[in-house]
Write a protein that binds this DNA or RNA. Structure first.
Length: 925
DNA sequence: TGGTTCACG
DNA sequence: GACGTACGTGAACCAG
């Protein structure tokens, strides 16, 4: 029999109680912190008091990740009347998570589940393992879980609540409580129940009949006529209510039970947290402050203007010689112990490749405080000439020692672009968690204000120039891999990375709540990291022989065309040189209408050549065809063959999370987000992306998501109605703008619809449609007249960006547009168009990211855990799965994608999802 | 390295 | 009256 005793703290209950018990207070940074203080005090008291008794062996704090959950899918009115949390409480949630972490206690939350459900899951698992369980809460819903070995602890009056309490309060056994709660309903959570039935009657009915089903089936036996009729009329509501109050206890545990083991109270991280928050009275308890300050609460009442946070100047200079090379186990143990003591640690990996799927781990660097960093070489070899293989800890030994630290749920790991380290460490059997990513912190705070690479950030925030990689490893042909760098040099470079990362975290993390970026960071971008890491590791199979065949075919055809082009031009020249081509066309051949750009070369782009081809210039058409063939060959059929990973036989792209200004992902090495599809020849390349034998490819894409979002965000009744009915939106636009729907007007209408998303100008539209400018102007005016809301959206967005300097998506993601205040008209207008487009493109990006986050759990819950998500192409997700999984997976994928906004945002248009399958990506469209 | 072109959403 | 002219990406190629 195990003597383990798990305590589960209902964090949400704690938070609200703390908030309402204390006056509004702010901390030394000027952020509201009353609830943080109350929560910290209560948690302290709990841990302290439990310590004196035969307290817990395991402890976790459970929080609600989102305000709405699966219950809203059952009943859209669930908790609908609950007001949003008070404005000054919202920024305190992340600080409260920090508080829990400072206590070295795991903090658990899960999208789509309420804290109550997570508590039920852990209770179930712990009881099954023979543990005792105590839930720290006095919530009546949680009383359903009471049974021998499980009780509730009400910390308000230090009471243990067991079976007797339920019997006394509700007159039934805990197992029957759910039925009572269903009948009586809950006005706060908006659980309907049965009208006219309160706690008394509900309890009496369940006592009399035993359970809800019997009550509903036995209305004949009920004598009171009103009660009887109400039960008959609202039986469905009662059944729905039963499901709403039922706790979900069959979900996978976010953290294994064993990871909740209590470790006592390491004073260091706690001290750091309390000092940062300015909680002096608590600081005194933890062992006195350095200043020995007063033990009164050092918080200022709100009311007066909060002072701006003091600029954090790093007092600690960068000193590369102070970094430590860790080459023996004792030293490593010391660093790991330091990590546990601090409660957070910056981590960086060094490898021999920029491609994380190919990269072999060469070393790991750690930092625990500014200036305090080390490098642990693991696979360094000499340069083969002068230096020999240096002394270092055996890789397996070091990995085994680092793993518990890197996976400990109470220790925060801090990295810069954690996805890379995750992919590399996954192959060493390490799954980093929990983590923060300074690159993503910067992206979610400062998108549009500059790069988010470490060098950019160090320069911008720390006024520090990092050691450049090329000064360590060289460039070009002379470049060496990191395992050949001398230990001394490697330590300076690698430890600096960890040091810089830690300092950046200290600068950026606090801004998150103050600047309203917490939600998008914690609930979208940060959790997406491991999802993308798995997609990159999965890769996609390409048929090398097919690519080679296409390559040869394209090459032959291009060579033939090149000969004809030379003949037509009257002599050989480099067709691929825009400069030479321009000279040949407009000077040597004397064609008319050549336009020169800034750099003095004739434009020979597709528009210009199409114009000439339309005028009957045969060489223009030939050049266009030649360009297409050579483009397809060099960029796709040739390059792609070289990108196949020899170990996996697949192509592993790298998704960049912090490049696009709008929140989109981008894809590199190779870019799999621009594989051809629009032309027949190009589409054949997509056919070379295949499923492995016995599997098929499934492609699911949002149909016209950006137009739908525009209809919602600009609130355009006609467009919303059309989407709701499933009408063809371009035909509708054609009807409204041109008065008739033909092939031609529909095509023009499509262009107009796109131009709206991109920030329209009459000149630009005139160019696209090849009509006079005045005509384009008239179309725009007609569009605005027919679809009121669009011009209002544009005006409101521009007013907002001019005032704030940024625009936001429906999910709160910011894009900063500093050029909006430029003195140059061109720059300003460009920023205006970006401002109109960014909320729409960015919301679309948020939505598909949310779908990706939920996809794996949803598939797993449907018994489809081995369906693999491979690619994201902005509005499309690509999967690989067994043919007999297609039917079930399609349902899950469609549901997850179509419902990805919920619960935070409810759109006024439906999101359409189109799904196709086939042996190749091309065939799946 | 910068400019041009073109593949995708 | 002039200005500059569709949003977001990445990669290959030429030429200086």
């Amino acid at each position: 029999m195990s003597s383990n005793h798990l305590y589960l703290v209902d964090g949400s209950g704690y938070i609200f109680r703390a908030y309402h018990r204390l006056p509004p207070l702010t901390n030394r940074h000027g952020t509201p912190a009353g609830a943080v203080f109350g929560f910290t005090t209560m948690l302290w008291k709990l841990v302290d008091e439990l310590h004196k008794t035969d307290g817990p062996t395991h402890l976790a704090v459970i929080l609600d990740a989102s305000s709405k959950t699966f219950r809203n899918e059952m009943y859209d009115q669930y908790k609908a009347h609950r007001p949003p949390p008070p404005e000054d409480l919202v920024p305190q949630f992340p600080l409260i998570r920090d508080a829990v972490r400072a206590f070295s206690v795991p903090c658990i939350e899960e999208l789509g589940l309420e804290a109550d459900d997570i508590i039920a899951c852990y209770s179930e698992a712990a009881m099954a393992a023979g543990w005792k369980v105590t839930i720290v809460s006095s919530d009546k819903d949680l009383m359903q879980l009471i049974r021998p070995g499980l009780d509730l602890l009400d910390t308000m009056n230090n009471r243990r609540l067991g079976r007797e309490h339920v019997l006394e309060k509700f007159g039934v056994e805990p197992e029957q409580l759910g039925d009572v709660l269903a009948l009586m309903g809950d006005s706060v959570d908006n659980v309907p129940g049965v009208p006219g039935i309160g706690p008394k009657t509900a309890s009496q009915l369940i006592q009399q009949f035993g359970d809800l089903a019997t009550v509903l089936a036995s209305t004949d036996a009920i004598t009171k006529p009103k009660l009887k009729q109400s039960l008959i009329d609202h039986a469905d509501n009662a059944r729905l209510s039963r499901e709403l109050v039922r706790l979900k206890c069959d979900q996978a545990l976010p953290e294994p039970l064993d990871d909740l083991a209590l470790k006592g109270l390491p004073p260091e991280p706690l001290r750091a947290f309390l000092e940062d928050m300015g909680f002096k009275s608590l600081l005194a308890k933890v062992g006195g402050t350095s200043t020995g300050g007063p033990t009164v609460l050092a918080l200022a009442p709100t009311g007066q203007e909060a002072p701006p946070p003091p600029p954090k100047l790093d007092a600690v200079p960068f000193s590369h010689k102070d970094y430590e090379a860790v080459v023996d186990e004792d030293a490593l143990d010391r660093w790991i112990a330091e990590g546990f003591k601090c409660g957070r640690i910056a981590v960086d990996t060094e490898t021999d490749s920029t491609d994380p799927v190919r990269a072999r781990l060469v070393g790991v660097s750690l930092a625990t405080a500014p200036g305090k960093a080390c490098y642990i070489p693991l696979a360094h070899i000499g340069d083969g000439l002068l230096s020999e293989t240096p002394r270092q800890i055996a890789k397996a030994t070091a990995i085994a020692k680092l793993k518990p630290l890197l996976e400990d749920p109470s220790i925060l790991k801090i990295g810069q672009n954690m996805k890379y380290d995750m992919v590399v460490l996954a192959r060493e059997g390490i799954a980093i968690a929990p983590y923060d990513d300074t690159m993503l912190l910067s992206y979610d705070l400062d998108a549009g204000l500059g790069g988010h690479g470490m060098d950019d950030l160090a320069q911008r925030h720390l006024d520090h120039a990092c050691i450049e990689f090329k000064t360590v490893c060289g460039t070009g042909k002379a470049q060496i891999t990191f395992d050949k760098v001398t230990l001394e040099r490697a330590t300076e470079y690698a430890a600096e990375d960890a040091d810089v990362t830690l300092r950046l975290w200290q600068t950026l993390k606090g801004r998150l709540a103050r600047e309203g970026a917490t939600r998008v960071y914690e609930l979208v971008d940060r959790p997406l990291v491991p999802v993308l890491a798995r997609m990159e590791q999965a890769g996609i199979k390409v048929d090398r022989e097919e690519l080679a065949r296409l390559s040869a075919e394209f090459a032959g055809e291009a060579a033939r065309l090149e000969g004809e082009i030379h003949q037509e031009a009257g002599g050989p020249f480099t067709v691929g040189s825009p400069k030479q081509l321009g000279d040949v066309l407009f000077d040597r051949m004397g064609l008319k209408g050549g336009r020169k750009g800034k750099s003095g070369v004739y434009s020979t782009d597709v528009n210009e050549l199409e114009r000439l081809a339309g005028e009957g210039v045969t060489i223009a058409r030939m050049v266009l065809d030649w360009r297409q063939l050579t483009k397809l060959r060099s960029t796709y059929t040739e390059a792609l063959q070289g990108q196949i990973n020899p170990a996996t036989g697949r192509v592993h792209t790298c998704f960049s999370m912090a490049v696009a200004q709008t929140g989109r992902l981008s894809s590199t090495d190779p870019n799999l987000q621009n594989i051809p599809i629009r032309t027949e020849m190009g589409r054949r390349i997509r056919d070379a992306f295949v499923a492995e034998p016995g599997k098929v490819i499934l492609s699911a894409d949002y149909s016209q998501i950006e137009l739908r979002l525009a209809a919602h965000m600009a609130d355009v009744p006609a467009l919303k109605e059309a989407f709701a009915k499933g009408d063809d939106i371009h035909s509708l636009t054609a009807q409204e703008v041109f008065g008739e729907v033909t092939r031609d007007t529909r095509a023009r209408a499509k262009t107009i619809n796109f131009s709206i998303l991109y920030g329209i100008s009459a000149f630009g539209l005139a160019n696209r449609l090849e009509v006079p400018r005045a005509e384009a102007q008239a179309m725009i005016e007609r569009y605005f007249a027919r679809f009121p809301g669009i011009n209002h959206y544009i005006a409101a967005t521009l007013a907002e960006v001019r005032e704030k300097g940024f625009v936001t998506t429906l999910f709160g993601r910011k894009t900063h547009l500093p050029w909006i205040r430029s003195s140059k008209q061109g720059e300003r207008q460009s920023a205006e168009r970006q401002a109109i487009n960014a909320p729409i493109q960015g919301t679309s990006a948020d939505i598909i990211k949310r779908a990706m986050l939920r996809m794996e759990p949803a598939l797993a819950a449907a018994g489809l855990a081995d369906v693999r998500m491979l690619l994201q192409v902005h509005d499309e997700l690509v999967f690989e799965l067994a043919p007999d999984q297609v039917e079930a997976a399609s349902v899950v994928i469609r549901d997850v994608m179509a419902g990805a906004c919920e619960p935070y945002v409810t759109l006024s248009v439906p999101l359409g999802v189109e799904i196709g399958t086939g042996p190749s990506w091309g065939a799946a469209h």
